[in-house]
Amino acid sequence: MSSVVEAGPGRGMSALAAARPTRPGALSSTLTFAWRAVQKVRRDPTQILEALGVPIMFTLVFGFLFGGALAGSTSGYMQFYIPGIVVFTGIMISMRIGAVVNLDNSREVTDRFRALAIWRPAAIVGTLLGNNVLYVVGCAVAVAVGLAVGFRPDGGVLGLLATILITLVFVFSFSWVYVVCGLALKSPTAALSACQAIVFPVSFVSNFFVPQETLPGWLQAVVNLNPFALTITAARGLAHGTATAGEVGAALAGCAALVAIFAPLSLFLYRRRA
């Protein structure tokens, strides 16, 4: 009978010996890292609380504070403001990516990943994808709070889903800026500060609070190049069922530009890590 048990190496630690499977593909490795990010959210639910705070606070405080002054009535303002809040929620709660990437990169476990024969960007791309669980929660809360305060989108459920979808595409693209901060700076705190220093001008120099037509001409030119503003324009159109192919195309082009610039820069910094 023992011969059955001892098939194989037949030594005391035979569980140490394992056959070598084939090298995993880029997609498989990326999804594995996405799974890792989801496990971390599951293990630390305070991250979800953060994702709830932003949409609730910004909708209630700024919506009611500015609504009457900016649009004449709060309910009128909400029709304009809420799709922007969805995108803003995404850009705000994804800011933590800078600190996450920085911490990861300073840990020895990254050496282990880097010493594996996997597609190098999988660790970062997977982290970005996995964190979508947080963004979906945040965007859904933004929509729910909006509906509660009188937001009535003409695009219906499909329009709202499209709004959230384009937000997720934008957040994935903009996250590469955070990844660059995370990899370029020395500490998680420094990375987070840099992310904040970038987010505030990007989100306020935009059509987030007010329509860009009310801005001076030179500022409109800047806003028209801001991928955050382009995404908000598309998100408003999608929510209310008025989006044109041009608006959605411009938003996607802005996202593509972010990825084209910041993804290669991130991967350069990731490779360079000593």
């Binding site: 995993p24 594995t32 020895e108």
Partner: peptide
């Protein structure tokens, strides 16, 4: 590679660490 300090992910369970790395080896 087993690094000088521990090359494991502190924010995951022991089981998830091994599942993660098994997947990255191609299982």
């Amino acid at each position: 590679l087993t690094g000088q300090y521990s090359s494991v992910d502190e924010e995951l369970s022991g089981r998830d660490n091994l599942v993660l790395l098994s997947r990255l080896r191609g299982f």
